[in-house]
Simulated assay, not measured.
Amino acid sequence: MIKFSLRCADGHDFESWFQSTEAFDTLKAGGHLVCAVCGGTDVEKAVMAPRLGTARAPVQEGKAGPLSAPASPAEQALAALKAHVEANSDYVGMEFAREARAIHEGTAPERPIYGEARTEEARRLIEDGVPVAPLPFRPGRKSN
């Protein structure tokens, strides 16, 4: 696996993992690369700096080092949105479709909720006029 820094035609920077350089080239040629910020399809590899570690301080994935770039404004905004949703809404897990419908019909107390739904369940909610929207992140907590 290889992680590439990418940039879209609108100047949005983001990263993505690929099986190989050839896999990146195949996806790009097929028009399957999409900007993680705006959805644009004109995506190129950005200039990348190598990630080097020393015997004293090896690079650990997911941990910022002294040479790490700060999070982009888009990443910061997404993190803030996720924190706001998780702090101000009830996580209802896979019961999202049932709970959203009950709130819409007035049989459950009105409150902000978030959770997970199958594509067909979400489609039915939208068709029935239940106000729902997909979130651009996965919930940070799961219920068993």
Rank of each mutant, 00 (worst) to 15 (best):
E61L: 15
K82D: 04
L81T: 06
D42G: 01
T41E: 10
C38E: 00
T21P: 05
G11K: 03
T41R: 13
I2N: 07
S5Y: 08
F96C: 02
R124K: 13
S68K: 10
H32Y: 11
M1Y: 05
A55S: 04
Q19H: 11
Q19F: 11
E22I: 07
V59L: 12
A49K: 08
A102C: 01
A69G: 10
G40K: 03
K28G: 00
Q19D: 14
M94N: 10
E95Q: 15
M48N: 08
V43T: 01
V59C: 11
A64K: 08
P131W: 08
D13E: 14
A71H: 05
R101V: 00
L135N: 09
A100E: 08
A87I: 09
R7F: 00
A97I: 08
G65L: 00
C35W: 01
P112A: 14
A77K: 05
V34N: 00
G140V: 04
L135I: 09
L78T: 05
R101I: 00
D128R: 13
Q76C: 10
P58T: 08
H84W: 15
L67W: 09
P136R: 10
I2R: 14
E75C: 05
L67Q: 11
A69L: 15
P58L: 09
H84Q: 15
G31D: 01
L33K: 04
F4Q: 03
P66G: 04
A77M: 02
V92C: 07
L33T: 05
A49N: 07
A77L: 03
A108H: 07
E75M: 11
A80K: 07
V59T: 14
A77Q: 09
E44L: 05
A23S: 13
E86C: 02
W17D: 14
N88Y: 09
G93W: 07
G106D: 07
A133P: 01
N88A: 13
L78R: 15
V37R: 06
V37L: 09
V37K: 07
F24I: 06
H12P: 06
P50S: 09
A102V: 00
I113R: 06
N144M: 10
G106R: 11
K45T: 05
L135C: 10
R123V: 12
V85L: 11
P136V: 04
G62L: 04
F24Q: 06
